[in-house]
């Protein structure tokens, strides 16, 4: 444990509820340990706010180990902060310098309305999943796990796509607010595997239709999503979604 603490300034977006107008509030934040995670630092701020009779900053969090995908925040102009391949909860205060001002904003997209402070409503992703992100199977006795052979290369690729935690960083980072990396990861994961192959045509159309209906933007291939994805999901999955779409329309 390092003994030196950091003095920080936090410029945080505060918004009472969905319909209120939000604004930035700046908080002085002394006594931050470089070993704290970003969320622990916000916990400390909230503890101070509650003690002073102020309202705590609302932010989403759950597992705090980078697998649940809830901690959505735009830190100093980057989704999940400045480091690659991690979520906000995996970001540590040693990344920042003493005396720095840190700007913390919610994801900003028409399809992700702000609920309060840093918390956004990401149920648009759930509705896209409901539209086609599943396989239809008859219930019954569980089949043998190795009954359908799948090559290692394909299994690995499907697993890479399945690593998506649905955090929404792709949408947050994209200049167009496009959800293509999320949707393509789901389409790709299922299209690659035999269980998902059967419904691939209807799936890609249904998920793209729902994505469009939710008000996400159109992909313009800047690849910001891939750079900011905490699971480093490749834009090759977007290429596969595009192929799946052409196939569904033409074949």
């Amino acid at each position: 444990m390092s003994e030196q603490t950091m003095n920080l300034k936090l410029k945080i977006w505060r918004q009472k509820d969905k319909n209120s107008k939000g604004q930035f509030v700046t908080y002085a934040m002394p006594g931050v340990s470089p070993d704290m995670s970003f969320l622990e630092m916000l916990d400390l701020l909230n503890l101070k706010l509650v003690r002073n009779g102020e309202e705590a900053v609302a932010f989403d969090h759950d597992c705090r180990e980078g697998i649940c995908g809830t901690c959505s925040m735009f830190i100093n102009g980057r989704a999940h902060g400045p480091l690659k391949g991690i979520t906000a909860c995996q970001l540590h205060m040693r990344t920042f310098t003493d005396g720095e001002t840190i700007v913390i904003e919610p994801w900003r997209a028409k399809a992700f309305p702000i609920i309060k402070d840093l918390v956004v409503d990401r149920s648009a992703f759930e509705r896209i999943m409901q539209a086609g992100g599943f396989v239809s199977v008859r219930t019954g006795g569980a089949p043998d796990g190795n009954a359908i052979p799948i090559s290692k290369a394909v299994a690995d690729e499907a697993m890479d796509a399945a690593a998506c935690i649905g955090c929404g960083a792709c949408v947050a980072a994209c200049k167009n607010g496009s959800a293509m990396l999320f949707v393509s990861a789901k389409v790709s994961q299922l299209a690659l595997l035999p269980q998902g192959y059967a419904e691939r045509k209807t799936r890609v159309e249904a998920m793209v239709a729902q994505m469009d209906a939710e008000g996400f933007g159109n992909c313009s291939n800047t690849y910001a999503c891939e750079a900011e994805c905490p699971k480093m999901i490749s834009v090759e999955h977007i290429a596969r979604l595009n192929r799946e779409y052409v196939r569904a329309k033409l074949v």
Partner: peptide, 26 residues
């Protein structure tokens, strides 16, 4: 359409760290 997908812009945004300007300004 893409501008409309983000009606409120970020106060601080560092797109140069995740994408090329040729792609953002095509």
């Amino acid at each position: 359409k893409n501008r409309q997908a983000r009606p409120v812009r970020y106060d601080m945004n560092r797109p140069s760290e995740n994408s090329t300007w040729t792609s953002r300004f095509a």
